[in-house]
Design a binder for these strands. Structure first.
Lengths: 335, 335
DNA sequence: CCGATTTAGGAAACCGCTTTCCGTCCTGTG
DNA sequence: CACAGGACGGAAAGCGGTTTCCTAAATCGG
């Protein structure tokens, strides 16, 4: 390529990499032309080795089929793309070991930054491993940012699960409900844990006695939510169910309808996240809106800032959550 | 690292990279131990430069928030992971230019293979660009496999959209429907085009006269499907609607229910893909099951085979589709 | 018109690995 | 016991770029 243009490798590199070293306009054009003619694209791998920068960022998601992540990822791409960073997504598919493998892969491939999205898992073994991995990654110059609760100490963007949960529960309380059940996500997930905590806090705050039979795990999936709802109805006859995420709430309302329980006439259902789907569910869902896409944008911006200017006083910033009332919740049945 | 173990770089490399060059067990252990102690992980970028292999594959998806892709991606990961390949996903978010940029990024980063999933777009300009890009990529040793219709000529796995569509339409015809409308995906997408063609063919096969007022575009999204359904009902009063994918079918049935049209009492609705969601939609969806995850698996296996043994007589293989009847379709209303 | 800068471009070192090539030592064999 | 050949490990040459260092030519001030 350099030969074809009749210049040295150095010169070719300088114009193609946008170096600050001066190159005459004539030479520059000649290089650009031949590069274009030959369809030459510099080998990013070689460049990465030389510069210790790959211009890529890796996004670790817990489960790619969960629309929650899609929104966040989109936000990340919104800002990464225009800044010429390639965004690579990798999904752990809810497997702890896979998740570690995946972080290891990103680190080994030297992505410039790793974004952790909703992969915070509460497990001493996992925490130790992931901490070691990410610490080494950071020591080598990688930046890690978290877009969800996570045991690893890194800057990022969060939102308040407790406040959000309190909002739904209070909404339900205001409608007169007292037997409010909860379908939780996988207990090992930190998001999940916090949301459940939010549910419990809000109830005890209102002086409603806790009742373990009103809680059931639904694994953050639609079928999980459906099964949990069925179990809860059979066991504890709640008048309202608040799920740990929208997916479970949708599954729950579907199953309840199938079983002949009116939603919200006989039982109210609420979710969390406000994924797009929620307005199209069997019954449009009352939920807590989390500004997912914005979260992604802010996260990516944080990454770029750190990459450009160093960590600074990097810490967590917070995005607001908001109750969205649709038609899946209503007053407690009178009889 | 090599020094720490008291061996030469060559030796360290040999044990860490699993070379066939003999290394005594004692030395091997020493290297392994110190590597482990230091948490040393070889720089994949450097390794990639030396070997011209990155042990990564890139998956180009058209829209990451479409659950269709999630399933396929999962299938790919099923086989890539165990074979120690990292899978990177990148989403074009329905933007043609972005999609090209994304292929370019994968190529520049020298992923060993690129899987094209449902990103086949019918646009002369795009086709020319993408062909040039991928051809160069292949010339350099990259392997490309397509998991959906795509203008670029490459091996892969497909399934028959025409047969699938014929199955749903015939199902509807058998139920007595004659005014069968169609909500299509984005016209530029090849999948979309084929499915629409399948719909038209099946109708004309049955001797039902084509009616352009019975076709409407729904962009493969839930809202798009909902809007299209509303338009169709106002304009042409179909007794059945077959959508180009499940997402649109779900949106459509939701909207129709909202507008007071019974599903399937007054209008039957069918989709295509059989994404997980479809059994949880407002009304469990009659649809065409596409073995998405299996498709991903087969695709990844094809990639690995080519990577290991060369292209061989690489061509398209085909996965079967199958009609799944649920409760969103029923006999044509009698009056 | 001359020395000091500035501008432009080339040579070569380097990024962190793999791999070829080579030398040493050990073993088995006639 | 001499020697062929295999086991083992090190030195060094890439891989394809970037960047430092250096030189030659052009420009400038006085």
């Amino acid at each position: 390529m350099a030969d074809a243009a009749g210049v040295s490798i150095s010169t070719a590199s300088r114009v193609l990499s946008g170096s600050s070293h001066p190159v005459s306009p004539a030479t520059r054009d000649r290089v650009l032309d031949t590069a274009d003619r030959l369809g030459f694209e510099p080998n990013r791998v070689a460049r990465a080795l030389a510069t210790a920068r790959t211009q890529t960022m890796g996004v670790v998601v817990h489960d790619i089929s969960d629309p929650y992540f899609a929104e966040i990822v989109r936000g990340i791409e919104d800002v990464a793309g225009p800044r010429d960073y390639a965004t690579f997504i990798s999904s752990a598919n809810r497997d702890l070991a896979d998740e570690l493998a995946l972080i290891r892969a990103f680190a080994a491939n030297r992505v410039d930054a790793i974004a952790l999205v909703a992969s915070g898992i509460n497990d001493p073994g996992y925490e130790r491993e992931v901490t070691g991995l990410l610490r080494r990654y950071e020591e080598r110059g990688g930046v890690v940012v978290k877009l969800s609760e996570h045991p690893y100490d890194a800057p990022g963007v969060r939102y308040d699960n407790l406040t959000g949960m309190a909002a739904v529960v209070n909404h339900l309380l205001a409608l007169g409900h007292r037997r409010i059940a909860h379908i939780s996500g996988p207990p090992e997930l930190m998001v999940s844990e916090q949301r459940t905590q939010g549910y419990r806090d809000a109830l005890s705050e209102a002086g409603v006695a806790p009742d373990p039979t009103l809680e059931e795990c639904g694994w953050f999936s639609m079928d999980g939510g459906a099964d949990a709802a069925e179990t809860l109805m059979a066991r504890a006859r709640p008048t309202a169910i608040v799920a740990g995420n929208d997916l479970m709430a949708i599954g729950a309302s579907r199953r309840l309808l199938d079983l002949g329980h009116g939603v919200p006439d006989q039982v109210s259902i609420a979710g969390f996240d406000d994924i797009e789907l929620s307005s199209y569910a069997s019954v449009p869902l009352t939920t807590v809106r989390v500004p997912l896409r914005e979260l992604g944008r802010l996260g990516a911006e944080r990454i770029l800032t750190i990459l450009d200017d160093g960590p600074g006083t990097a810490s967590m910033s917070e995005a607001p959550v908001e109750l969205v009332v649709r038609s899946s919740t209503g007053p407690v049945p009178t009889h």
